[in-house]
């Protein structure tokens, strides 16, 4: 059986996989990182979003073997070792941006990538469009959008540019 070596949340792993094994299956079933969820089978819902080499990707739409040598970050890897939450996690809590919690890990991972890649700021419309790869059935997105906007100044350590508000 082929093997794949990848670094997940800073820890190097080598695991035996089939050719068809998906990255999400390695995370959930081989590494026990069940925070990354599976919500669909057509790459639409985004519950499985993780970061691979700094980019948000759908881990259900990537073969494990494609992640050879990759740096993967999952929801479990966001908080500091002392338990301090990432500002995005903190703002999700602050703004009640989660209900059942199932879409939350993928939503948080997508949101962090979105904010990180927009140092120029984000409008409400841009946040909504930037989260179009993630479905949530509970929140109506209202509080998720608020949480993402609130996380921007914390992640960039400056106020959101006025033009973007």
């Amino acid at each position: 059986m082929p093997q794949v070596t990848l670094t997940v949340n800073g820890k190097r792993h080598t695991v035996a996989v089939e050719g068809r094994t998906l990255l999400v299956e390695v995370l959930r079933e081989k590494l026990g990182l069940t925070g990354t969820h599976i919500g669909c089978d057509t790459s639409q819902c985004g519950a499985c979003v993780v970061h691979v080499n700094g980019d948000s990707v759908k881990s259900c739409t990537m073969l494990a073997l494609q992640a050879e040598g990759a740096e993967v970050t999952t929801i479990e890897g966001l908080a500091k070792p002392d338990g301090t939450l990432h500002p995005m996690q903190e703002m999700f809590r602050e703004h009640h941006a989660l209900q059942c919690g199932y879409c939350t890990p993928g939503m948080v991972m997508s949101a962090i990538d979105l904010v990180a890649k927009h140092p120029e700021g984000l409008t409400e419309r841009e946040i909504r469009e930037g989260l179009d790869g993630n479905l949530c059935r509970c929140t109506g997105y209202h509080n998720i959008v608020k949480a993402v906007a609130a996380a921007w100044p914390l992640m960039h350590a400056k106020p959101m540019p006025a033009a973007a508000e």
Binding site: G46, S56, T61, M62
Partner: peptide, 9 residues
């Protein structure tokens, strides 16, 4: 095309 995640792959 698609969404951010699709565009990254």
């Amino acid at each position: 095309i698609g969404d951010n995640q699709v565009r990254h792959r």
